[in-house]
Design a protein around this nucleic acid. Structure first.
Lengths: 76, 76
DNA sequence: TTTGCTATTTATAAGAT
DNA sequence: TATCTTATAAATAGCAA
């Protein structure tokens, strides 16, 4: 497992790309949550997958509305 | 360095909290960038520090506008 | 506020299920 | 597709500047 340094470039294999997306999405949201708690900060993260699906994380009270607005702009 | 497991709770010491914010902000943005490239996804991250400063990362063409809108909602 | 150092903790790629 | 495992790459806490 983990044979060498991961090169940061688009993963061409569809299955591998989706698995990596799922795993790293979890990692990114976890890091976001930790930063919010440790440093008492407001955090918002939005992700649009290759397949057009939206995922978000926010520790803000108005997180949902914020992410909704954010997404409206991004998908234009 | 790194004496034990990091407990995820607010860092009370102001200096330590700010140093950790700066470091983890860099880590979070790096992870966001990597996810965007590896998985061909659109990513947007917003951070409001304890001191009221805004930081953002986005690989979207409309990232700036998106983050601006996002911030308008968050700070209400 | 950010960065270099570096011992440790974490994240995660690949495989298998 | 979403886990579980586990060897290895990567992030980072505490100091110092």
């Amino acid at each position: 497992m983990v044979r060498g340094k991961t090169v940061i470039e688009k993963i061409e294999n569809t299955t591998s790309r989706q698995v990596t997306f799922s795993k790293r999405k979890g990692g990114l949201f976890k890091k976001a949550r930790e930063l919010g708690v440790l440093c008492d900060a407001q955090v918002g993260v939005l992700l649009f997958s290759n397949t057009g699906r939206l995922y978000d994380y926010s520790n803000s009270n108005s997180g949902y509305a914020a992410c909704y607005l954010h997404s409206e702009v991004l998908i234009r």
